[in-house]
Simulated assay, not measured.
Amino acid sequence: MSLHHSAHDEVHAGAEELRTALKDHGITLPSLGVDLPGFAAVYGASLVALGNCNAATARALAEVLRKAAAR
């Protein structure tokens, strides 16, 4: 397995883990996915694109993070 392929698998796995964790809290980021231009770059790491969300989703995500930090 090449280094590039490994990074490709890793970023996809990370995006899916985040999607699942968010879903467990009733949160969906519709445009969550892999940042495709990151695969074309020869210099950097692949990125997970979080995308856009509406205000209600942003608030729900902030609430989950605040509760997790308070533990």
Rank of each mutant, 00 (worst) to 15 (best):
K23N: 13
V42D: 03
L18F: 01
T57G: 00
H4A: 11
R71T: 11
A40W: 02
I27G: 04
A58Y: 04
E16T: 14
H5S: 03
A13F: 09
Y43F: 05
G51A: 06
A56H: 10
N52A: 14
V64R: 09
A45G: 10
A40R: 13
R71C: 04
S46D: 09
Y43I: 06
N52K: 10
T28S: 13
A58E: 03
L3A: 13
N52M: 09
G44Y: 07
P30A: 13
V42L: 05
A60F: 04
L47P: 03
A62T: 01
D35K: 15
V42Q: 02
K67S: 14
E10I: 05
D24M: 07
T57H: 00
L65P: 01
H5V: 03
F39K: 15
S31V: 10
A15W: 00
V64A: 14
L47A: 14
E10S: 13
A68P: 03
A49K: 14
L29H: 07
A21L: 08
S2M: 04
A15S: 12
E63W: 12
V11T: 10
V42T: 05
K67V: 14
S2V: 00
T57L: 01
S31D: 15
T28Q: 08
E10H: 12
V48P: 06
L61S: 02
L65E: 01
H25R: 15
A70Y: 09
A7Y: 02
L18Q: 01
A62V: 00
P37H: 05
A41M: 05
A60H: 06
A62Y: 01
V64S: 05
R19W: 00
L61M: 10
A21V: 06
G51F: 03
A40L: 07
S46R: 15
K67D: 15
V11Q: 04
V42Y: 03
D9G: 09
A21N: 01
N54A: 05
G38V: 14
A56K: 14
G38F: 08
G33I: 14
R71S: 11
E63R: 15
H8P: 00
D35N: 15
R19P: 04
R66C: 09
G33E: 14
T20R: 13
M1Y: 07
A58L: 06
G44A: 06
L3G: 00
F39L: 15
E10C: 10
G26E: 08
L36K: 15
E10G: 06
A55R: 12
V48D: 04
G38M: 08
S46C: 12
V42A: 06
G14I: 00
G51N: 05
